[in-house]
Nucleic acid binder design. Structure first.
Lengths: 138, 138
DNA sequence: GTGTTTGCAAAATCTTTGCATGACG
DNA sequence: CGTCATGCAAAGATTTTGCAAACAC
């Protein structure tokens, strides 16, 4: 089922003239199956566990490629290695529970609208944004 | 005038039992005088230019110390080395002009309020947050 | 075929740290 | 003076890259 999604992504890559190698295919599958936000080392470990022979260098190169294709998003939380998530979901921001480390996704249309408004007032268009709430259970 | 602010900060450090060394004093002055958002290497360069003998390792250690004292804030924009700013200003967020690299500060009470509201609804208190708008002139 | 991608190991970048020496309070 | 801070150089952590071999299309 996540494989169906991975297959769709592979086709998109081929259509964009990007070669679908064994390694890229494996990584697409790992990313499509991930329900969390893994970093490069974790994705590498999962790919290897899944039986894919792939080097860490290739993982990094592939992540860059997939990001350029708009297939995945890069998350850079404070001081951690970068994490990644599939991009084919609806837009959302992140809330990080500082005690458990859990990452919670959320969206708020009002905030989105305000951001665009503020940028526009100053003569800018938003290319992308980053909103992270570092929180603690009350 | 920024020296007055630096002196005030030095006193606060002493009161907190933190030694005010020649190096820390110099860095406080450089930070108080900065109108931009320099990284560690840049702060080091400015301190050295100002005639202070200080090593890069000490700059890093000092930044950590000053942050722990709540005197400076750490900014981590996408993929760049960390930047720093004096903390004794009113809270604000950052807009990054992707073409010029300029960092623009802004605040919006409505966004602040919404963030707190969203966190509260999910049973959390915000410890701190990060809002960055990556923008382009329209 | 042939231009891309991979693996490996080496390098780049930013940041932290161990240890002997020096200096603040 | 005792303790804490510094400098240096070496190590850490993450990410990038040069080059020859392997592979997708």
């Amino acid at each position: 089922m996540t494989d169906r999604r991975a297959n769709r992504l592979e086709q998109a890559l081929r259509d964009a003239g990007v070669r679908v190698t064994r390694q890229r295919s494996a990584l697409l599958r790992v990313i499509a199956a991930a329900e969390d936000h893994p970093d490069a080392a974790e994705l590498h470990a999962r790919a290897v566990t899944a039986g894919a022979g792939v080097s860490l260098a290739t993982v990094y190169r592939t992540l860059t490629t997939l990001q350029a294709q708009g297939v995945i998003d890069k998350l850079e939380f404070q001081g951690e290695p970068a994490r990644w998530e599939a991009a084919d979901q609806h837009h959302h921001d992140h809330m990080i529970d500082m005690d458990s480390g859990a990452v919670i996704e959320f969206t708020d249309e009002r905030i989105e609208r305000l951001q665009a408004e503020i940028a526009a007032e100053m003569g800018y268009d938003i290319v992308h944004h980053r909103l992270e709430l570092y929180v603690r259970r009350r």
